[in-house]
Amino acid sequence: MQITEELVSYVAQLSRLRMSPEETAEMQKQMSEIVSYMDKLNELDTDGVEPLSHIFNITNVLRDDTVAPSYAREDILKNAPEHTEETFVVPKTVE
């Protein structure tokens, strides 16, 4: 798999990371090396093997539908870099 700078830029955009041309070039180099190592997995025949996401076979871990008190709003907001007494604050999402 060839990792191009275009691909690095696309992935950076998806990841919400701003990268200078130099960083993109460096990442392209490092990612290429790692991804070509990852391609090693292709040597292993996994035909017919089901992908395994959860290592242990446990199911149905469920919680009862019982209301617990929510947190004080002050505690929800206090770590925010910008907030009012009531809400978080972000740059406008619509034009």
Partner: peptide, 19 residues
């Protein structure tokens, strides 16, 4: 995110996003 994360973290985020 660019200023807040270090290089190694950014690299793994990029790799993870890619895969």
């Amino acid at each position: 995110r660019s200023e807040g994360f270090g290089t190694e973290v950014k690299k793994r985020i990029l790799l993870g996003t890619f895969v």
